[in-house]
Simulated scan of single mutants.
Amino acid sequence: MNSSATSHHHQGSHIPKHFTLVLTIGIVLLGVCAVASLLFGARVIRWNELIDGLFNPNIDSFGANVVRKRVSRTIFSLFCGAALGVSGALMQSVTRNPLADPSILGVNTGASLFVVCGIALFNITTANEYIWLALLGAGITAVFVFGIGSMGRGGATPIKLVLAGAATSAALSSLVSAILIPRAYAMDQMRFWQVGSVGSASWSSITTFIPFLLIGILIAVITAPALNALALGDEAASGLGVRTGVLRLVAALGGVILCGAATALAGPIGFIGLLSTHVIRLMLGPDLRYVIPMSALAGAIILTLSDVCGRLIGNTGEVEVGIVTAFIGAPILILLAIKSKVRSL
């Protein structure tokens, strides 16, 4: 423990090696994904149509209009991916568990349940109402999972939190089904939402989302140095003057805001937080001052790329992005679970 504590301490003082390289590659990839998202879909756009759609507002051709439609979708998937990436980094740090992810800790499902209740019982239809319900659901679920995970000997151990999250998630999923099955009209509206999709993005949902994204990322950036100390263990962190209870609460709140808002607008998309944070940790090490902003970049790339892949696989229609991320994420999760038996955070 001491050797890792000292190595963590040294990391605090300098920029991780390869940081500039990883950042440059990340920004280039982000640009490539954004352009691909504008070009590819049920109809492939030509370069001149792309230019018209972006820079010539008075040209009213079919291709240019398709580009304009895809702009909101692209921005939305970049924002959602960034939110889920940062949320994953926060959840992993708070629980000190490398496999923590909003979808594994049941937070996604909690947000889903509240949105489903809103749709089925109160006829809620707007993004603005979805967000508050999803945040409430995500928050209550996070508190519940953490409470159950903290029971018994040893407090909230990483393995107990994942088990509590999985059990809670399963229970809430069946509740979602129970509410939906007798209500056909809610089922239709819900089906698209529940798969996880960025296809229905509109400018109004983006403007609704931005304040939550900014608040969540601000919390993440402010708590990053203290979360680095938390990685040394609660006693060491307390010794360094960190109020661990308050820190966990605030950082978890940031994670819940990001995950809840993204889930409200795009549906429960899993694995992004897990994947992006892991990729970044492998490249840059554990210093959260770098992991958090880079996870935002990685999450945006992964989600946008998955969305483009879903459109290309789907030939005439499209495969929803939630299906694509699960397809990519599940095998990686299995590999990580096997590896992390050897080492935990």
Rank of each mutant, 00 (worst) to 15 (best):
Gln189Val: 14
Met190Val: 14
Arg191Glu: 15
Phe192Gln: 15
Phe192Ser: 15
Val195Tyr: 01
Val195Gln: 03
Gly196Cys: 07
Ser197His: 08
Val198Ser: 00
Val198Phe: 05
Gly199Thr: 13
Ser200Tyr: 11
Ala201His: 02
Ala201Ser: 12
Ser202Pro: 05
Ser202Thr: 15
Trp203Thr: 07
Trp203Arg: 09
Ser204Ile: 06
Ser205Asn: 10
Ile206Asp: 00
Ile206Lys: 00
Thr207Cys: 11
Thr207Met: 07
Thr208Lys: 09
Phe209Pro: 09
Pro211Asn: 06
Phe212Ala: 03
Phe212Val: 01
Phe212Asn: 07
Leu213Asp: 02
Leu213Ser: 00
Leu214Asp: 06
Ile215Cys: 06
Ile217Ser: 13
Ala220Trp: 00
Ile222Ala: 15
Ile222Trp: 00
Thr223Gly: 03
Ala224Lys: 02
Pro225Glu: 06
Ala226Met: 05
Ala226Ile: 01
Leu227Asn: 02
Ala229Asn: 15
Ala229Leu: 14
Ala229Arg: 15
Ala231Phe: 09
Ala231Asn: 09
Leu232Pro: 05
Glu235Pro: 12
Leu240Gly: 11
Arg248Leu: 04
Ala251Lys: 07
Gly255Glu: 08
Val256Thr: 04
Val256Asn: 03
Cys259Leu: 12
Ala262Glu: 04
Leu265Ile: 12
Pro268Cys: 12
Ile269Val: 12
Gly270Arg: 13
Ile272Phe: 07
Ser276Phe: 10
Ser276Ala: 14
His278Asn: 14
Val279Phe: 15
Met283Leu: 13
Leu288Glu: 01
